[in-house]
Amino acid sequence: MSTIKKRKTLDDYFLNKPSKQSKTSNVPKLPREHESIPGLRILTDFVTAEEEQGLLTFLDQQEWRTDLARRVIHYGGTYCLMPPRTATAEERKRIENTILTAHPMPNQLDFIVSRMIGHGLYTNANRPEYCIVNEYKDRQGISAHVENFRFISPVCAVTLSQGDWMRFHELTKADDGSVRSGKASKAEKTGRVKDVWMPRKSLLVMEGEAREKWQHEIVRSKRGRTAPDWRRISLTFRTDKDK
């Protein structure tokens, strides 16, 4: 009994054809930019659950700065710190003029840096030299700001423990309004606001407009009701332009 050959269609030639890239590279493509914020990307599952737990265990054993609005660790070179909100004018001036020596980037973070280089976000020549670790508890956030222009693009942040929302405000023009500059609240906005979900174990990538023309903030009220032990740990990586 003869069998009838099904006539091939265009779908047979293209839909199931293996891509050349899959044969030559194991590094996944970066996801497309956020539909409303040019230069913003979220890489989900950037670290595994096992890697996440290892990082949390390591960080919980470190010495945290506790005199600010939230717990913080600074790694890499030197870094200027924000004075606490309760500081007097005299204390604020003294703290803002003080440069503290931070511990070098620990080996435990090397795999994250190498993975970002593997994705083409950085190169070995401009690998991140700074990392700020922030711990956000239930009622803690951070005010709207743009990353300091002393750092190159991109600025990348890993989210651990719990996911959270980041709110973006479009500015009328690029503005170097970092938290420490004191200018952030004066930047002129267009009125466009976008809320972006940062999943646990993801990497947030900000470059181009997302990094220079959109302020970002963590709005504590956006979370709604959380468990008493809720917390998000963020690791934000930066490279100085003068490196």
Rank of each mutant, 00 (worst) to 15 (best):
residue 1 M to C: 02
residue 5 K to L: 03
residue 13 Y to F: 09
residue 15 L to K: 12
residue 17 K to C: 12
residue 22 S to L: 04
residue 23 K to V: 15
residue 23 K to Y: 15
residue 27 V to K: 03
residue 30 L to V: 09
residue 37 I to R: 04
residue 40 L to E: 08
residue 42 I to N: 13
residue 45 D to P: 00
residue 49 A to R: 02
residue 58 F to I: 05
residue 61 Q to W: 00
residue 64 W to Y: 10
residue 75 Y to I: 09
residue 78 T to V: 14
residue 78 T to W: 11
residue 79 Y to K: 07
residue 86 T to D: 15
residue 91 E to N: 00
residue 98 T to H: 07
residue 99 I to K: 13
residue 101 T to F: 13
residue 104 P to R: 06
residue 107 N to L: 13
residue 111 F to G: 04
residue 116 M to T: 06
residue 117 I to T: 06
residue 117 I to R: 01
residue 121 L to H: 04
residue 125 A to Y: 04
residue 126 N to R: 09
residue 132 I to T: 14
residue 132 I to C: 09
residue 133 V to C: 14
residue 137 K to Q: 00
residue 138 D to H: 06
residue 142 I to Q: 05
residue 147 E to I: 05
residue 148 N to L: 09
residue 152 I to L: 07
residue 154 P to W: 10
residue 155 V to M: 06
residue 160 L to E: 01
residue 163 G to K: 01
residue 166 M to K: 11
residue 168 F to M: 10
residue 168 F to L: 14
residue 175 D to T: 15
residue 176 D to S: 13
residue 177 G to S: 13
residue 190 T to R: 05
residue 190 T to V: 03
residue 191 G to W: 02
residue 191 G to Y: 02
residue 192 R to K: 15
residue 192 R to V: 03
residue 193 V to T: 12
residue 193 V to C: 11
residue 194 K to S: 13
residue 199 P to Q: 07
residue 201 K to Y: 03
residue 206 M to W: 05
residue 208 G to D: 05
residue 209 E to H: 06
residue 210 A to Q: 03
residue 215 Q to D: 14
residue 220 R to N: 12
residue 224 G to R: 10
residue 225 R to Q: 12
residue 227 A to S: 14
residue 229 D to W: 09
residue 232 R to D: 03
residue 237 F to W: 01
residue 237 F to R: 04
residue 243 K to A: 12
